[in-house]
Design a protein around this nucleic acid. Structure first.
Lengths: 120, 120
DNA sequence: GTCTTGGTCAACCAACGGGTTGATCAAGGA
DNA sequence: TCCTTGATCAACCCGTTGGTTGACCAAGAC
């Protein structure tokens, strides 16, 4: 049950960051909180669109919104990054470990088993 | 060629990993290459759907596909992870730095004055 | 040759995502 | 009080995506 929740969370976070505009918003929020219209000024879209983006970021847990009179300051919740880095690092280290072992095997043998193109 | 290309790449990578099935495929590929049907056996979808997922992963640069008779072994390209971690780490450290400074400021003062916002 | 295996391509469909406009709300300011 | 500002909600449009099925191709196997 915990897994599904984490899984869902991770999906939301990745999906939220798949949009360049939202990534840029996150980048801006790194240097301080901002209101919806302050954030939106940087993009050529309606305020409603900005609001939607922020909703996506909020539901992913990447930002939180409070109240200040009619303003809604947006605040970056940086802890969520941990969720991603944990996922990434886990598999990266696994993969690297495997390559290291593969190298060992190849070094132990003489002939390369197969020609692989791979590197772009 | 620089920013826009990287940006686009990043969008594709995040979008690719926003799908739990694709994340699971990546996880599986960490422990070794696999064919399309080997991968697909784990999910209750058609082979064509699996093929589509792999195409998304390939276009994001997360996997590469070679040829082995009628088989198409799928291989994880772990370097792409670096792209993500670089992006994440950059903003995370920025945000953490800001919080640290904010703590200093709050510690220096006695009463919290007011949230000014925007430290450029 | 023909058959089987492993995958891809093409067309289609329902659902989602990002954008828009119009209406509405909540809080000051005149 | 009425008006302006900051932001959200609701409905709608349209392109993309994830899934399906059916046709097809490529390489062994018989």
């Amino acid at each position: 049950m915990a897994a599904a929740a984490v899984d869902d969370r991770l999906s939301r976070v990745f999906a939220a960051l798949a949009d360049p505009t939202r990534r840029d918003m996150v980048a801006r929020l790194c240097s301080g909180d901002a209101t919806v219209s302050q954030l939106g000024a940087a993009y050529d879209v309606s305020l409603q669109a900005v609001s939607k983006h922020l909703k996506v970021l909020e539901e992913a847990g990447l930002v939180s919104r409070s109240r200040d009179a009619q303003r809604r300051p947006v605040h970056l919740e940086a802890e969520v990054f941990d969720l991603m880095t944990k996922w990434i690092e886990r598999y990266r280290s696994e993969a690297e470990e495997r390559y290291r072992r593969l190298d060992d095997v190849l070094a132990a043998m003489d002939g390369p088993a197969e020609g692989e193109g791979a590197v772009s």
